[in-house]
Write a protein that binds this DNA or RNA. Structure first.
Lengths: 326, 326
DNA sequence: TTGTATGCGTTATCAG
DNA sequence: CTGATAACGCATACAA
């Protein structure tokens, strides 16, 4: 049986409230005589007392737990963000509950129902299908919530990369090396991130063919097959999974197209394929989430939160650099 | 104010116990007249009742939450495992608390102290420094726990790849192409996974130089510099981070060494560097954890748990395949 | 400075 | 079949 306040109150000959006050460590602890405080602390550690945080949370309505609801922690992009968020939160005394929606609206809703019951203090979410109504509806009205990677109209607490700048930089680079005909392999148009990237690409480049699929590598592989008989000098993929799928399909590399994508491609620098990508600043994305969330958790939220937009950085590999003109 | 059992009891003119029995959905629910049961369920959904899981957990001593304590979810290997574990647990009605230790014994201990207080039902852990004593000491005595990737003497509930087989297969492949001189870049000897891999390598190959560092890519970069003036035909890295670091350091590729490593290297197949790796079966590792943990959580643990050992699969890229002999 | 009493929302025991 | 009532472990308003 675990030690409770009762045990240690009995042992020290004081009451549960006194013990609670001492052990809570709050300001109330100072209003206790040094003598009894000492005895309490001593026997507390002697008995190896561990506060039951569930009970505390029930009472204080604060669990010191935050949930992160995203499509897939297995995706390195999100995994790294999750890691940084977890570390940052841990420093502030919070734990992180990780939930995969798999881009499935059903699962997302399931979690939106479940999480508030679990007593989480806040939520960081990469929305799939939810709009403002369904979000604030399924969650408790005033649960602090931060949108990551994808904005939702009406909710100002959001952190995302500057997709227009990112896609624009890609177009700049492609035009600089003289790309004339591009193809586009994009993720679901229903996902704003993919949508916004695609819009810029279509606007700025001469897109001779395009394919929309899931946000996974299979779409890249499909694109490879679909575009086999198409003449193009560059393919733009709206995320790195898709680009991976495309590159993995390449067998012969006599005259490979330029691959343009978003996010980091590990090991790409020696690849005999010209690659250019707009990589997102993962550290700042994670940091942004926490810096937006913490004030809300502590109630210091001075009303006007501003969306955080983070610039991306253009990265090219050796093969791309050695490119002069097509 | 959230709806509670009291509200819905008042509304239906019944008592809290009755409402609880109905809404708990257990066998006790059947012992309630269909009439009142109907009314309760109706007004419950009418009022939008959401059970407070904290209160329930406090009472039942079951939180339906499991913790995963590992070095870093940002590492794709662990991130993917975490993802699969989360999905599997979610199907069984459990949530996952993800905790990064960063291979830091201090942080690991911190979590080992914190997690039981949070009321988790079980723990899956990639141990850093903990031995059996410190584990069972800091956790509640009977908290179900599964070791992932690294065994701890005395604890039989473990899931890991067959490191000897994995390293052996690597050596086989290297010897088959006539590797004579190898160098070894290994992670901390204190981590059993690295240690066991290194032991096999040293035993089976002619290792002309070696370097031990962290399990991160910096060690690979250090290795590149350190071995610049060493003659060798292959470098073995005890994990993929290290291999990444090494490969990223390569600028000219006139006569690159073979790189042997563990786990998947994305995009490696077109890389102009011969790569051979023993890739772990992530799906089976994750599945193994859950299949070991679930019975413990449900109390069906029939005493004799057996460690789960999972074979790896040898993967080579094009450059390696086109290798005849050195 | 400290103790008493009450409540957080549920489940479980025990009557009836 | 159902209703009081007592926990679960902790925090806090109110007394003293």
């Amino acid at each position: 049986m675990p030690i409770t306040l009762i045990d240690i109150a009995r042992e020290t000959g004081t009451s549960v409230s006194t013990v609670s006050r001492v052990l809570s460590g709050g300001p109330a602890a100072q209003r206790i005589s040094a003598a009894t405080r000492g005895r309490v602390l001593a026997t507390a550690s002697k008995l190896g007392y561990r506060p039951n945080l569930l009970a505390r949370s029930l009472r204080t309505r604060k669990s010191n737990t935050v949930a992160l609801l995203l499509s897939d922690v297995g995706n390195p992009f999100f995994g790294q963000i999750a890691s940084l968020i977890e570390q940052s939160l841990h420093r502030q005394g919070y734990s992180l509950l990780v939930c995969n929606s798999g881009e499935d609206p059903k699962r997302e809703l399931e979690y939106l129902e479940l999480l508030p019951r679990k007593g989480i203090d806040g939520l960081i979410i990469v929305v799939t299908a939810a709009n403002q109504k369904s979000l604030t509806e399924h969650l408790g009205a005033d649960l602090p919530i931060v949108m990551l990677d994808r904005e939702v109209p009406g909710l100002r607490a959001s952190v995302a990369s500057d997709q227009e700048q990112a896609a624009g930089a890609l177009c700049d680079a492609l035009q600089r090396v003289g790309v004339k005909r591009a193809v586009l392999a994009s993720g679901p148009a229903g996902i704003v991130t993919h949508q916004r990237r695609a819009v810029v690409i279509r606007d700025r480049l001469h897109v001779v063919a395009e394919l929309e699929g899931s946000a996974m590598s299979e779409t890249g592989r499909h694109a490879f097959v679909r575009f086999l008989n198409t003449k193009f000098d560059a393919i733009v993929c709206t995320n790195n999974n898709i680009a991976h799928g495309f590159i993995d399909s390449i067998e012969q590399i006599d005259r490979p197209p330029i691959v343009a994508c978003f996010d980091d491609m590990m090991m790409s620098h020696l690849l005999p394929i010209p690659i250019v990508s707009s990589v997102q600043d993962i550290a700042r994305l994670a940091e942004g989430c926490v810096s937006l969330l913490m004030p809300m958790l502590l109630g210091h939220s001075n009303g006007d939160v501003q969306p955080i937009v983070i610039p991306t950085r253009l990265v090219t590999n050796l093969a791309f650099k050695s490119l002069k003109h097509l």
